[in-house]
Each structure stands twice: as structure tokens, then as C-alpha cells.
Amino acid sequence: MSRIGNPQLLRTMNERLLLDRLRVHGPSSRGELAKASGLSKPTVSAALSGLEEAGLVRLVGSLSGRPGPTTAIYDVNVRAGVVAGVDIGRHWVRLAIADLRGDFIARSDIRNSARSAVDLVRRVRTLAHRVAADAEIDWTAVHYAVIGSPGVLNSATGRLDYAPNLPGWGRAGLVGQLRDALEVESAIENDINLAAVGELTSGAGVGVRNFVLVSIGTGVGMGIVINGELYVGSTGAAGEVSFLPAAEVDAPPDDARQRGMTETVAAAGGVTRNARQAGMSPASAKEIFAAAVAGDARARSVVEAEGRRIGALITAVAAILDPELVVLGGGIGHNVDLLGDSIARRMAELGPLRPRIVASTLGDDGVLTGAVSRALGVARDRLFDRRTPSA
């Protein structure tokens, strides 16, 4: 039988259309769904009946008090499945459990004080069960989890490459141990890529087809969105801009080769090092930016130099990708109000390319938001396919 004429396939397509409509737009009547989808009311009723029987849609209310029969209101059963997002960073570990609409049911952020990779895995497991308890579910009820982490998963070796800021994080067997500890089906993705997904779905990148997220903090990285989709390259290393050459590093030492020349000079460690060379004694890059706001001339000079580095980096990126928008994130990058002028001056010196530059609207929540979004994409498909007979 032709696929076009297959009644089961047509019903499946109609059910998915209505399920996605309810998920995005919220509670609706059969008449509203028919008008929005272009389907007939009997077709909508049949599709809703199938979705309700599968537990994916539920009756949430009714409207009466006007001529004609009572109008039933339907919505997605957001608790038909739950997902989790995990953000493992150098200083913080964040974990959230979300329903099928992406709303967080429970969340917790803890300081990353782990002394080893094994200790960190143990803490992530403990945090997962604690958040599940807060959500009043068993952790094993989570349908799918996405873990955001520094580095790029090497499919050939199973290791995380380019993750020097988390000691021991690139050793053999670590990824498997992390997945085993979580006990639910999961995937691990680069944290900056997930932050870009977060901006695409809920932040500064909503409605933007081509943009990049440049994150500058403990490390330097970039997430790339092309034609509305995350781009990771052939091995997942697209956006590893920490390895772009930096004029300030002529003969890179081993540390610069491992971390990348741009990261060595532009990340938090490079900023604090430059401040010390200027006669300051900062405890952190955050302290330097606070001093610049307060008017300290030395701090302002350090911030100016950092802005020029970022301007050169954005110029290089713009020359290759021509993004409509550059979203700056990370502990340093989000200071667009302080860095903006020096970034613009450096870009003007280097050429005519002028992408729009804004600060991340999600801030520290970007990776977690992106992780939940990716997990939802998998879970929604699986929950729907699981209840659909083979076409």
C-alpha cells in the first residue's frame, strides 16, 4: 500500500501535529485545533482520542454558559514523561528535572568542590537523586538526560578531548562511569554547544537563523547555529576557538598548546595574569571588572585590552561564518557594557565586518536550558513512537 494512502500513517501524522500544537500553544478546544491545523473536526476528535488513550493528552477543562454543547479543552499531559539536564562546570554543577513542556519541576545548583573526576561523578549521582526527591519522583523515572560538560566526546576513544579545566575529566572510562552512575539513558555534549541551543530556544537567539555564542570565562569556546540548527563539525570540535592563534603568544608553552593560545590570554587566567603585570593583586577576573566599574585606571586598562582580544576573535569568526548575531556569555563575556567599546574599536581597525553583539540573556542557566531542550527532543519522539503502531 502506498504510504500516502496508509490510514495509520495519516492518523499518526495528525496526532503528532496536534500534540506539537498543544505543546507549543497550550490548552485548546477541538474547534481551535481544527482551525489552526486545517484538519476537520472529526479528524481532530479521532486524533485526540488516540492521544488521550496513550496518556499524552488529557482533558483539562470545559467551557459552557453559551448556546450549544459544552466545549472540551485539551492539553498535553506534561507529566507523561520527565527529562533531566546536567551542567558540569569548573566551579558549579547544576541539575534540573523538567516536564514535557520544558518547565523545571525541581532544580539544584552546587559548588564543584570535587577533588577528582571519580569524586565529581559521585557528586553528580548524589545530586541527581536529591533533585528527583525534590520533584517527588524516583530518579529512574527520568526518560532521558543530557549532560553538558567541557570538552568534546571523541567517538573513537570514548574520551572527552579538550577539557583541561576539569582535572582527570579526559581519562579513559570516565564517560562510561558517568553514564553508569546516572542509571538512566543519557548523552554527553559540549557545554558551550548546549548554551547555544539554550539561546536558540529560550534566549537571545530566538528567531535568529544564524548566530554564534562566544563564551569567555574559565575557558573560551563557541557554539555555532546555522540555519536554525546547531553545527558541530565532522568530529564535534567546531567552535573550539580557544585554539585560534593569539599574537601575544609567539612560542606557545605546553599549557598554551593544551588549552589553546586564545584561551591562555583571553580566559579568566589570562586576565588576572595581565592585571598582576599591571601592578594589581586581584583574586579573580570578577574582581578586576568590579574595580574597572569603580574607576580604577589599571583595571580599566586590563578590561580595554581584553575587549580588544575579544574584538579580534569576533572578527575572525565573522570572516568565516558571517553570523547575524554574536551572543557573548561566560563570566567575562557577559560584561558587554564594559567590553563593548573596546570590542567595537578593535573590529573597526581590522575591517568592515559588523555582526550585532549582545550579552547572553540566559547567563548561568544557558547550558542547563540547552541540555533540557536536547533531552526533550529525544524524549518527546520516543514517547510518541512508543505508543504508535508501526506504519
Score class of each variant (00 low, 15 high):
A98F: 15
A98Q: 11
D99W: 15
G102K: 15
G102F: 14
F104W: 14
R107K: 14
R107Q: 07
S108V: 07
D109F: 14
I110A: 08
I110H: 12
I110S: 12
I110D: 06
R111P: 07
A114E: 02
R115Q: 05
S116Y: 12
S116T: 09
S116H: 14
A117C: 04
A117Q: 04
D119T: 12
D119F: 13
D119E: 11
D119L: 08
R122P: 06
R122V: 01
R123T: 00
R125C: 00
R125G: 02
T126M: 00
A128Y: 02
H129F: 06
R130C: 03
R130T: 05
R130H: 08
R130D: 01
V131K: 11
V131D: 01
V131L: 05
A132N: 03
A133F: 09
A133R: 11
D134G: 14
D134E: 10
A135C: 07
A135G: 08
E136V: 14
I137K: 13
I137S: 08
I137E: 02
D138H: 15
D138N: 11
D138W: 13
W139R: 03
T140M: 08
V142K: 00
V142C: 04
H143K: 06
H143M: 00
Y144F: 14
Y144E: 00
A145C: 11
A145E: 01
V146S: 02
V146C: 04
V146A: 02
I147R: 07
G148A: 02
G148T: 03
G148C: 03
G148F: 06
G148M: 02
S149N: 04
P150K: 09
G151W: 08
L153V: 11
L153Q: 12
N154H: 11
N154L: 03
N154D: 07
S155I: 12
S155K: 11
A156I: 13
G158W: 14
G158Y: 13
L160Y: 15
D161E: 13
Y162S: 02
A163V: 15
P164C: 09
N165Y: 15
N165S: 14
